[in-house]
Design a protein around this nucleic acid. Structure first.
Length: 243
DNA sequence: TAAATTTGACCCTC
DNA sequence: GAGGGTCAAATTTA
């Protein structure tokens, strides 16, 4: 990276020969760097609260992606410089509902310490699996109803809603038990929630959600409006305890 | 005044 | 050459 930075800094005032050498250096450095990229883990998540995952992020870029209505925002761990934490994430709004659903792509794991977030990530994967299983169960149980309404597209949207809802509620419960969440509730701090416009996307981590009845109701409505069979919570609880 | 965000430019890959 | 990802100077915010 230092070599690339040198190139960037000196390219404007260099002669043609020096410029070409620096360009070659820069490219060979990039190729060498690419060879060293052995294992990069990525994980995609759908959520209504893309900025609430327990980590501190710093925005380093935003770009309109071809074919997308909304821009993609690029975030890096705040401790990228201090501790060399390689974690990054990309956030993009995936629909225009209210509240909008966001797709979050996490790249690399955090090397800065935070146990609570590890639990959250584990929950995320677990919930994804549960939602998948739940949908298969619902689909085999009422295939005609599900397919007559909206086809396979609905299944995916349904899954997104279920995953996001469970994560939000569970994470809200988790945070509510923590000091931070408790303090936020005591202060009656408003929850930051992005509106339909991408311009409203906050670039800071929002106040943790408290698990309230009102919050849960927000996620019941879209399920009912699509004529989807209510989630089998008894089965969910059993699966969670035994799994 | 330091830290965070914005945004245009640049580099790399396909 | 197009498109995605990143950099870094300028600007904003706390």
């Amino acid at each position: 990276m230092a070599k690339r930075a040198d190139y960037m800094a000196s390219s404007s005032g260099s002669s043609n020969g020096a410029h070409k050498r620096l360009l070659q250096d820069s490219r060979s450095y990039a190729q060498e760097h690419a060879k060293k990229r052995v294992h990069i883990s990525t994980r995609t998540e759908y959520t209504y609260v893309p900025y609430h995952d327990g980590y501190q992020w710093r925005k380093y870029g935003q770009k309109m992606i071809r074919g997308n209505t909304y821009p993609r925002c690029y975030y890096r761990c705040t401790f990228h410089q201090d501790h060399g934490c390689p974690a990054t994430k990309h956030v993009e709004q995936s629909n225009s509902q209210d509240p909008p659903l966001f797709r979050v792509i996490y790249t690399n794991e955090h090397t800065c310490s935070s146990t609570r977030v590890s639990d959250y990530m584990a929950s995320s994967i677990h919930i994804q699996q549960i939602a998948d299983a739940s949908l298969i169960k619902a689909e085999t149980g009422i295939p005609l109803l599900t397919h007559c309404v909206a086809g396979d597209g609905l299944i995916k949207e349904e899954k997104d809603v279920i995953v996001s809802s469970l994560l939000t509620v569970i994470n809200g419960c988790d945070v509510a038990k923590s000091d931070v969440g408790h303090a936020a509730m005591q202060e009656n701090t408003p929850v930051l929630m992005a509106s339909n416009s991408y311009e409203a996307i906050p670039s800071v981590s929002p106040v943790p959600l408290a698990a309230s009845d009102e919050l849960k109701m927000d996620f019941v409505e879209p399920l009912e409006s699509h004529w989807i069979e209510p989630l089998d919570l008894g089965w969910f609880m059993e699966h969670t305890q035994t799994g």
